[in-house]
Design a protein around this nucleic acid. Structure first.
Lengths: 213, 213, 213, 213
DNA sequence: TATGAATGAGCATTCATTCAT
DNA sequence: AATGAATGAATGCTCATTCAT
């Protein structure tokens, strides 16, 4: 009865092991900072031997990579969905901001590290970051291009605006993270979207600036 | 005869030494990456003995901190000036963006490191960053508050908007850094300011969104 | 029906297993060098589990020893035969050299390792080597003694001469191994025998040297 | 007064340090075998810290190489001298054998290791060995060629004969090493030379063998 | 009998920091 | 003030061996 599972059981067990190791890394990072994440300490934290960690990860970098990967995966998956959906462009951006803020709100401790210690993704330096970041940027850029095409956005250098938007969202995340603030996520998301769409200028003010260009 | 100077001369000499050490760190960082910045290599680069570095800096962290500090000092000084000047709020923000972009443009190699290897400002994680960042944020927040008071900006949560603005500028710096791009700094600065002021929305579009709030 | 065999069958099976493990070691050595011979890799190569190897060999050293043993066994068996045969002493020595050279010629890859990486026979250093080497030496010594007794050899310290002869043959093996040479094995064997028998001196030259002793 | 020495003093001190480390390696090798030669143990043996060893040798291999190098240097220097001297070829070979035997006799413990554990010179595997060995071989080959040219040696494949001679000497060294024997070095050297020159064959015996070729 | 996950001692190497001169 | 030799804790990683299943 338990036998039919024999083929998958180990796989699941393996996966469970990997996850508990990753969890230990996260715990360690949050509790004592990145410098404390040595293979020895990680093993200790899981309650296994140093060598055992190497049964699951080729080396330290692979472990760190997979921690980052699996920490961010749920977020990026969801965001891809949003960006490639059917909502109007402005709504997409607001949804993006909302999703992002929510996710980080729910994982404060971890991302405080992941955000501040870029070392985590070193080794191949920026390449790794880019794979993920660029993908995100491409998605947002496309949404803005769509919005421009539909006439709801002014024509602009979409890529640069996308970068600013993406980082503005991160800025908001930072604000929330640093402030230990609990203001409704929805409000902040709306703030970003509103600001991006209509700008800071008071209605009717400075109409020349825009036309100047 | 040279004696009267005895009291200040050493001070100047000291300062000179400190600066040549810092310069060596910067050179090393840019040339070979952060990993090559060991106390040994630094001393070698300056042409002094390892131990001598410790006469000027308590430890490695203090050295790194002061490198970052003095690397950013000219920028922050200039930005403080801008933010506390007499120009109208929107102009200030554009000037801020322009200054920021220009500065990083002129120091690519160094900031590519300073930006990507946040390890540099480790010590107690965010504390160091905050001193500088928060000051910057305060300045921008005040400008926005002023703008609101003057009626040129819509009332908003100025601090959050400030954070978004500041990071949007950084995002633009990143775009320029990564793209090795040489587009006119002025254009990008104007883009940021324009976007911040008037938003992405096409004129006349979606007037309800704003009133909704 | 298969039961009566029960007593021997396992023995044969065991032996077969041992041999396939040894074969794997040899394959691994030749293909990737001694450093790649880890218990893990060996098991992998055979297609069994790491632990299973330990059912056949107490530890790694025993495995390595038996590889060397069985690799050399056919050679030593044949050489014993030659040395204890009925041929005249000089012929025996030439046959010995020929056999030795031929055997190593046919197993280049393996012996290149076995020869150069004496680590293989470590354990208690020379003890292992001696069992085999001394036996060989004894055989050759006896042949020389026989030759002396029969009057075909001059009286000498047979054991030392035997050692020199044995190692001269190895030297020749080395020459062939290193040179990747394909000169006829027979010629080299004859060269050794001829040199040993008649020396390097030109005929008639220096008759005093010998009589001096 | 001690000042003039200041420039050379450190060099000498450095060299002394290096030598005491090398001495420790040799002591360790002889006392406990090659496996005990870890950087930790070496440092311990010298009475310094592990890190200090790295002040004098880039890595373990360099240390091992230099131990081997400096252990063999006096021997090779002397042998080069002998081989390139003016003595008649047969005398040179005897002198070579004598020198070799003497040297190893005086350094038994060390060479017992150096001989049996070829691992010492691994890393670049055979290349290192060859540099030294091949040079030796070339020297001996040339002496034999000279002897042939002068008519005191029969024409032969000098390189192969040289290899056999060199290894025959090593064989004799081994015999002495293993036997803990104290027979006069001179006798053994003469034995080798005599055997090489006149062979094993009793006078007048088997004259056909040679002419056969 | 066979497995293979788990172990943990062991190793080479790095580098911030100290201190006698 | 300046030196730089010495230190030694710390780290990532390997692999022979064990043992519960």
């Amino acid at each position: 009865m338990a036998r039919p599972a024999r083929k998958e059981e180990p796989k699941l067990w393996q996966e469970f092991k990997r996850q508990s190791i990753q969890a230990a890394v996260v715990r360690l990072m949050c509790r004592e900072g990145l410098d404390s994440v040595t293979m020895e300490r990680v093993a200790q934290e899981v309650g296994i031997a140093k060598g055992t960690v190497y049964l699951h990860y080729r080396d330290k970098q692979e472990l760190l990579d997979s921690v980052k990967e699996s920490s961010l995966e749920p977020l990026t998956a969801r965001i891809d969905q949003i960006l490639s959906g059917n909502a109007p462009a402005p709504k997409k951006l607001e949804a993006y901001a909302l999703r992002y803020l929510t996710y980080f709100d729910e994982n404060r401790d971890l991302f405080r590290i992941l955000l501040y210690e870029r070392e985590v993704m070193r080794t191949h330096g920026s390449r790794y970051r880019h794979d993920r970041y660029r993908k995100l940027l491409n998605g947002v850029t496309k949404v803005i291009d769509d919005g421009i095409a539909e006439g709801v956005f002014r024509p602009t250098e979409s890529r640069k605006v996308a970068a600013m938007f993406v980082d503005a969202v991160v800025a908001m995340v930072n604000q929330r993270l640093l402030a230990d603030e609990s203001a409704p996520v929805e409000d902040d998301a709306r703030l970003i979207a509103d600001l991006l769409l209509h700008g800071l200028a008071a209605e009717g003010a400075e109409p020349k600036t825009r036309s100047r260009k």
